[in-house]
Design a protein around this nucleic acid. Structure first.
Length: 465
DNA sequence: TCTGGGGTCCTAGGACCC
DNA sequence: TCTGGGGTCCTAGGACCC
């Protein structure tokens, strides 16, 4: 069937069929789901926003709200200037402001993801409102026989023949709309990079199909910024090289770009040419977990900073535990005026699950900034490992279910584990901690205890002035 | 644009090992 | 004690994305 000869640029075998599904102004759509009166109205969802207050930032603005110049990341106060609250008297253009309710959005996203997984063998969830699907085995690049085509005026090209894949994508889109009640834009292409751009091409509620033979033509006129991975900095630097469209970039010498941008430069050229052979791989485990929060105004107060860090540390440690994650590195982020981002991190000899240790390390790292005004603080754990506790408990049997693992956490060493037991456990479980590391570990245990300055300089360099 | 929160990946330089 | 080269791990910073 469908004997189309698309063999040109592709790697021997049949071109894949990748869908990129991107929910339109997802948070706002969710708010409309439970408050249908908001349909058709400008909706602004703010984080750090509370009803009636002016603080916070825009997380998502509906397309109606965007017409007033409201955009993501904008301060709420600024949005309010452009578009007053509907509740405030009878202003004419009026917006509906709602605080972020992530738990609810995750619920809705769960319903969407369920549909996606039923529509594809491999789904890569990129974020709460975005996913890639490899549907090569579910549909085809073949053309619809047609004759009964219902005059739909669709994607770009004048008299583009309809592909079977387009029908499939429409089906996915309609299921989301019908069964969940939120709009999505879908891009269909033979690779991830192009599918991503395609989903963005006709937002909201769009469906853009880029057939294998059309990729280069589709990309050519687009601005470089349309390419995933080209942000403001790269855009500017590319402009200096006279590269402004994807076509310019495609025509560029990869070696020249590699000189300037490293390996990334080479990759960008490939993307601009429509070459992208990355497989759609299922969503993996997180690499890090973090929590951060800003002060209403920069502060120098040591106590305030320490309190903030302690709270963030407790938070992030709790989240790690709830996800059954152990961590080996603890770090902080300190944003000082005007907007300088400083990070410090300290690694342990083995994975641990120990909220108190997260706090003490974070506080220690913070000492370097005792005298600095700080506008924002963050705490992060990384070098994560999963299922280690369950493994230890079950002694090599199958991993415990998350529920089991969670239920167990009150009990054994989890939670009370100090660094020594953690290292011991690690030594038993894995081979990679050799004697030297174990020795270092035993030295390291002293760091926690009384004399904080009695540690080998390595981890604490930052705290010496 | 004077800046919210949660992530990912890449690179450069230093420490350390063989 | 000096010298070489290769590899790995770690930290810090940067760019980017949603």
């Amino acid at each position: 069937m469908t004997f189309e000869a698309f063999t040109e640029t592709e790697t021997d075998d049949e071109p894949r069929i990748i869908l990129h599904v991107d929910m339109d102004c997802f948070y706002a759509s969710c708010e409309r789901l439970r408050e249908p009166a908001l349909r058709g109205e400008p909706v602004v969802v703010g984080m750090g926003y509370e009803a009636g207050e002016p603080h916070g930032a825009v997380a998502t603005a509906s397309y109606e709200a965007r017409e007033y110049g409201i955009d993501s990341a904008q301060p709420i106060s600024q949005a309010l200037d452009a578009l007053p609250r509907a509740a405030d008297s009878a202003t004419d253009p009026a917006g509906y402001y709602r605080p972020v309710d992530l738990a609810f959005y995750e619920d809705v996203a769960g319903d969407v993801k369920e549909i996606l997984h039923s529509c594809a063998d491999v789904v890569r969830e990129v974020s709460i409102d975005e996913a890639y699907l490899d549907v090569t085995d579910r549909t085809s690049w073949g053309l619809v026989d047609d004759a009964d085509g219902d005059a739909g005026s669709d994607d770009g090209g004048a008299d583009d023949p309809r592909t079977i894949a387009e029908g499939y994508a429409r089906h996915v889109k309609q299921r989301i709309s019908r069964e969940v009640g939120v709009p999505a834009s879908v891009g269909v292409a033979p690779n991830m990079a192009t599918a991503k751009i395609a989903s963005d091409y006709d937002k909201p509620d769009g469906l853009t199909v880029v057939r294998p033979g059309e990729v280069a033509d589709f990309l050519e006129p687009l601005p470089v910024a349309a390419i995933h991975g080209v942000g403001p900095v790269t855009e500017r630097e590319l402009a200096e090289l006279g590269i402004e469209t994807a076509g310019d970039l495609a025509a560029a010498d990869p070696t020249v770009l590699a000189d300037r941008f490293g390996e990334r430069g080479r990759e960008l050229v490939a993307r601009a040419r429509g070459d992208d052979d990355r497989e759609v791989t299922p969503t993996g485990r997180p690499k890090s977990l973090s929590r951060e929060s800003a002060f209403t105004e920069p502060t120098e107060k040591t106590e305030a900073k320490r309190e903030q860090v302690s709270a963030l540390a407790a938070d992030v440690a709790a989240r790690a535990r709830s996800r059954d994650a152990m961590y080996q590195t603890v770090g902080i982020k300190v944003v000082t005026p005007p907007f300088d981002i400083n990070t410090r991190a300290s690694s342990l000899p083995g994975p641990i699950d120990d909220p108190d240790l997260v706090e003490s390390i974070a506080l220690e790292l913070l000492e370097e900034f005792d005298d600095d005004p700080v506008r924002k603080l963050g705490v992060r754990v990384s070098k994560l490992s999963f299922g280690v506790r369950a493994q230890a408990r079950l002694d090599g049997f199958a991993e415990a279910s998350p529920g089991e693992a969670a239920a167990n956490q009150g009990g054994n060493r989890a939670g009370t584990a100090d660094i020594t037991t953690a290292v011991d456990a690690d030594t038993q479980l894995t081979d990679w901690v050799d004697d030297d590391a174990a020795l270092a570990a035993s030295q390291d245990t002293s760091r926690e205890q009384p004399d904080e300055h009695d540690r080998d300089g390595q981890a604490s360099l930052g705290s010496f002035d």
